[in-house]
């Protein structure tokens, strides 16, 4: 690991934009934050706001071709992206990428993109709306293995932390000057102060406990699910949702391409079989599934963390008012017995 002090971030941006396809979060005229590709001569100041769509689509594309069939044989259609940099990914989204890296370990399409990417993380020094990353160990500071480079704002300067050999290679030509380790202590302090600024969200920790206690009733989920219309908003914006469907798209002369596209486990048809048998026919079952996937301990065991990274995007986008904050509050208030799991097993 090497640390550098940088006066002008634009210097770094322009440098990276020359060697890589350069993507950064920008804002449009309505105050909407989103990822956009920028040329080296059109870099923009780094914004600290959470983009509405996470970075997952860079690796797990919203729609992509898996293969083509030419009438005689099947052929893989792997993407061949040029090297690209995601500049200023926040810790919640980086944690999600780290999670997906494990989940899609053997997925050639995901990896084809992922391996071309240089991740430049950005420490958050202020809480964002609906965000609760510290509670689920996903922020506000970028975790060690989650990015190649970490940027930390120091007033008018930037701390640049080089974490991987990929980063070293990318930064080499810039000839940055290494700086003192005490800046890392200052970083820790700033991040700690940021954590203190998050609102009290004990209901989330309590909710996770309760969710894993097996005491939440089916009736609770069914009542909650009246509000779910399977719009797919939460699963689309959730940085760790990864379910997909496939479809064949006919071409001329017996040929076709097979495409995969983002799917949502909240759809009634998600598990419905051709025979109309449906293991998750009840909306309550599906809503429960979604939250289990985000917070159940079994997934924790497999991925060493919960899949929820605390970005709060589901709260913002759910038209049925059952995003993470609303649900966790209701779980702690109504979901079965009043007290947590300790009591129920007594």
């Amino acid at each position: 690991m090497k640390i550098y002090l940088l006066d002008d971030l634009q210097h770094l941006q322009a440098h990276l934009a020359q060697d890589y396809q350069f993507h950064q979060v920008v804002t449009n005229n309505n105050g909407q934050y989103h990822w956009q590709q920028l040329a080296s001569d059109e870099t923009q100041p780094l914004v600290h706001d959470k983009p509405q769509s996470s970075a997952k689509g860079f690796f797990f594309a919203e729609q992509e071709s898996l293969l083509v069939f030419n009438g005689e044989y099947f052929q893989e259609t792997l993407p061949t992206p040029k090297p690209f940099v995601l500049f200023g990914v926040q810790s919640c989204d980086l944690t999600a990428i780290h999670y997906q890296d494990k989940f899609f370990k053997d997925d050639r399409y995901y990896q084809a993109r992922r391996q071309q990417c240089l991740l430049v993380g950005l420490d958050c020094i202020n809480p964002c709306e609906h965000g609760f990353c510290p509670t689920v160990n996903a922020g506000p500071g970028v975790r060690e293995e989650h990015a190649d480079i970490v940027l930390h704002p120091l007033g008018h300067k930037w701390l640049v932390i080089e974490q991987t050999s990929k980063a070293a290679e990318a930064l080499q030509a810039l000839a940055l000057i290494e700086t003192h380790w005490h800046y890392l202590t200052q970083r820790d302090l700033t991040l700690h102060q940021c954590e203190q600024k998050f609102p009290d969200d004990k209901y989330i920790t309590d909710g996770i406990k309760k969710l894993n206690s097996g005491t939440i009733t089916d009736e609770f989920w069914q009542t909650l699910a009246i509000q779910c219309r399977g719009c797919s908003g939460c699963t689309t914006l959730c940085p760790t949702c990864s379910c997909y469907g496939t479809r064949a798209i006919k071409q001329d002369n017996n040929a076709f391409s097979q495409q995969r596209f983002w799917d949502s486990c909240l759809y009634e048809g998600f598990q419905r079989e051709a025979s109309f048998n449906n293991p998750s026919a009840e909306a309550g079952t599906r809503v429960e599934r979604f939250w289990q996937h985000k917070f159940a301990d079994e997934f924790f065991t497999e991925f060493s963390r919960h899949s929820c990274v605390g970005c709060g995007r589901c709260e913002q986008t759910c038209p049925g008012v059952i995003g993470v904050h609303s649900v966790m509050k209701r779980i702690t208030k109504e979901g079965g017995q009043e007290n947590g799991p300790e009591v129920t097993h007594a």
Binding site: C231, G233, T317
Partner: peptide, 26 residues
Amino acid sequence: EKGKLIGVEPQPSHPISQGKLCDKGW
């Protein structure tokens, strides 16, 4: 970059939808 429509997002500051969409919108 090819001008192809690839996805949608809600507008967070829109006075009516406030960052939400229904399944049709999505």
